[in-house]
Design a protein around this nucleic acid. Structure first.
Lengths: 342, 342
DNA sequence: GTGAAAGCGCTAACAA
DNA sequence: TTGTTAGCGCTTTCAC
């Protein structure tokens, strides 16, 4: 690998002139320019980012920390973030971590030693103390997917309350009244917000969701299965299941079919996430989508704007995205009495 | 961020002594040791990897280049590689790239500027000229998933011929004779190898696979759908479909059901990959699994052994892993005449 | 407009 | 065993 020294020698100029030419910091004579260009060509010189990083204290690298357990839901996030990072001329160091504040802290410290310019955290757990971490870390941090707990940290999030609201209104519009719900861990703000949105908006339509109709799962396929087993064992009568992520909805759907209940004829199913699998199911899953690409773009750009602040710009530090509905085959309206008459 | 200088001052020793203590290169007096330890504690010193990298020309970072198009199949690979990389004390820079040799070259050059210690390429396309790239790149490269084309490059691969062989023998054992097959792009060695293994081993059992019974897809869900449309439009009679990846098999499965053909009663379906989705389908998909975690481990360790060669060790540079079968609900034996009599 | 020189944080050869 | 020094490749004052 040729260095600036080589280029300088080849071009018969000083190293600093080469540097200035490369960075366009000051005007260089056209002749010198030409000589340097030629020398760069000949030596196939490429600036060394590590040396630049040491000098500038900016490495053009950002870190992405993803919870190991939820990797299935976040694959698209990883890809988009990688793509957008790259489009902005940065590289991305990725880390999958356990849901453990100590581990998170260790990872941050390690990444700090690489002098990375900032970190995107994908976090749902309430446990991680991102705000506290951010204080120790003297570089920008952006948090994604985090529920609205009392932390002041630049964030990109989904309107999780709205998720529940949309599903509730949808089921109401389709005349469902006997409803069960599979939530995620209630010690996680995201889950709580989704559930409140759901309960509140059912209530607005005079539907009360009994405690027994709520099953607390762990966002896994197996939770969906367990939930149905539970509802059936409790002799709960229902025509609609909402799983607060796709995985649980899919588990539920398959279990229902094993009980010889048809989806959607006997029971409608709705998920959340619009994972790649959702449309491949039979019937394809009705679900709530989040604008993943836009969210990733927002997160990367937010982070970069924190890394390279532009004068006179005020930075919004909590960007909320709205969920949208994806109607597919697992949802059917309940026939009302009137319709039944026809 | 405290530097060695700070530690040295605090401890009243020279910078090099601190360095030597940190790296354990030579013996240091217990007293000095203690002073340094205390100073490190107080300053919260952490060695700067960028400075070390500049000096040592090793950054403790490796790169992972993944084809953008196939991201769905490779999510597990990314996660395992990240995990294993981390266990070995390295960081991982990830890049998703288009299937285009020019882009690949550009990415390599860019990563080279970061002085990364090596690259793992996940490549299936024949187009990418990894061997040529490796020559320009003066650091180790390990290639994964690549078909056996005439390139000398350290690789970790699946025995793709064996994949076809296993499926062929399985179908034969289950008395299927009317078989159709959805292959991946035939300009890709991986696809060709899988297909040869399949055809050869059917032939060994006196089953010829007519050209019309082979549909060339692109490893996508849609290809599976198209394939079934094609077979049906051609009035081809079949009791088993092999899709050379899960996505295509799933597409086929769903399309069959839309034609009111039952899987597996009317038609058996077999995939390849054992993706996370496979067991969530109804019925769950019979498929061929590759030992992903082991393969990732092998790839990372192979790369690291190239980065840090150990004297007297010879490095195997093509590691082949064997596929295995995952029997699930989409495969049923054909009743033989004898059995029909009973 | 360009060059010389110092320094980012670290390691390693050379002395002592 | 420890300190001094040079240098990895780059940027940026400070002269001229």
């Amino acid at each position: 690998m040729a260095s600036m020294k080589d280029v300088a020698k080849q071009a018969g100029v000083s190293i600093s002139t080469v540097s200035r030419y490369i960075n366009g910091t000051v005007y260089v004579e056209p002749e010198t320019k030409r000589k340097i260009e030629k020398a760069i060509e000949e030596t196939r010189f490429q600036p060394n980012y590590i040396a630049q990083g040491l000098r500038n204290k900016k490495t053009q690298i950002i870190g992405l920390v993803v919870p190991e357990s939820l990797s299935a839901s976040f694959t698209d996030f990883v890809r988009y973030i990688a793509l957008i990072t790259e489009q902005n001329g940065y590289e991305l160091i990725i880390r999958y971590v356990k849901d453990d504040p100590e581990v998170e802290k260790a990872v941050m410290l390690k990444l700090l030693r690489y002098q990375i310019d900032g970190i995107i955290f994908i976090r749902v757990s309430d446990k991680s103390q991102v705000e506290e971490l951010a204080k120790k870390f003297d570089r920008p941090i952006v948090c994604m997917m985090r529920g609205n707990i009392n932390e002041k940290i630049p964030s990109v999030v989904l309107n999780n309350y709205k998720v529940g609201e949309i599903v509730a209104n949808l089921l109401v519009r389709f005349h469902h009244t006997k409803i069960v719900c599979i939530t995620g861990n209630q010690n996680v703000a995201v889950s709580r917000e989704r559930l409140s949105g759901f309960i509140d908006n059912l209530a607005k339509n005079d539907i009360v969701l009994p405690k027994e109709n709520i099953f607390e799962g762990h966002f896994t396929y197996e939770s969906g299965i367990d939930a149905i087993d539970y509802f059936i064992s409790q002799n709960i009568d229902f025509t609609a299941v909402w799983g607060s992520n796709d995985l649980m909805a899919i588990g539920a759907m398959n279990r229902l079919q094993q009980y010889n209940l048809s989806v959607p004829k006997d029971v409608s199913v709705v998920g959340v996430d619009n994972t790649a699998i959702a449309h491949m199911l039979n019937p394809p899953l009705t679900t709530i989508a989040q604008p993943i690409e836009e969210m990733c773009k927002a997160a990367v750009e937010l982070l970069l704007s924190l890394i390279n602040p532009i004068q006179g710009t005020t930075i919004v530090d909590r960007i909320v995205f709205e969920p949208s509905i994806v109607l597919r085959g697992t949802l059917l309206p309940i026939k009302t009495n009137e319709e039944m008459m026809i």
